[in-house]
Amino acid sequence: MVKKLSEWKFTSKEFAQIPEKFASGHRACAGCGPAIVLRLVMKAARGPIIATNATGCMEVVSTIYPYTSWKIPWMHTAFETAAANASGIESALKILRKKGKIKDEHVDVVAFAGDGGTFDIGFQALSGAVERGHDFLYVLYDNEAYMNTGIQRSGGTPRGAWTTTSPAGKVIPGKAEHKKPIADIMVAHEMPYVATANIAYWKDLVIKARKGMEVNGPAFLHAFAPCPRGWRSENEKTVEIARLATETCVFPLWEAEYGEYKLSAPSKAIALKPERKKPVEAYLKTQRRFRHLFKPENKHVLEEIQSEVDRRWKKLLKACEIA
């Protein structure tokens, strides 16, 4: 039988030797952050597993018929349906197992969706599935816009970012609204497990993914995943940029079991030594989607972003009972 997380100790070498369930040769762009999320989560699998995907980049690049990158059973139905897909699969597995119609073994169900499929169009199905308590892990790979359709703003796009539907115009400098705090909204569902993760901290990510699978009931993993095409950033800097998001507290790392917030190591280090917290400019300047914010007339936007990051960070520290 597979080992429990508490017993799961591995070196980088051992982790590298785990067979890939998400095969190479898919058609993701160079420097794709979400593809890293998929690969890591799949390597965290503890046993038999079924995955499902919302429509989006990852579905498109991994399954162009008759090819597939999935070495496990995988299904896609539509854009807004990742959580509903998982609900149906999990319900079927449970009853078929009870009736003796399939092998008597636990099968993990993992749903993948991007920010569009989670913050926006798929939110109702997600909220419903969590309320019903299906035993599944929902992985949000967040690249902060509708990248598959060509960089349109979503509820996950941050304040000030240029996208094709929040252009940096003469009057309006990029997206006017801040990012929806999706993971906090999931915590408010009083669900067993919610965590944020970042491809730059891969070990933290895989452990959280494994935890999400082991939890009895719904788990939500919000994985930060840069998109060089959409962010107008350098392909080779994907992981570096992702790390800066956590170092600036733009994307802090934490987990919450039944609503109890706990900072994860990379963010806890900043909480304990606040001088380590980098200014948001260090992160924003790595991406040309924020380029216009560095014009003198948009200084107020930069200030607003910093102030909102600080406000949310303070709130998080309070929730973690650190501040």
Partner: peptide
């Protein structure tokens, strides 16, 4: 919408 989606994936699981 979810009723139909669940039906589809449950059916695809063999139910």
């Amino acid at each position: 919408h979810t009723a139909m989606t669940c039906s589809i994936t449950a059916s695809a699981t063999g139910a």
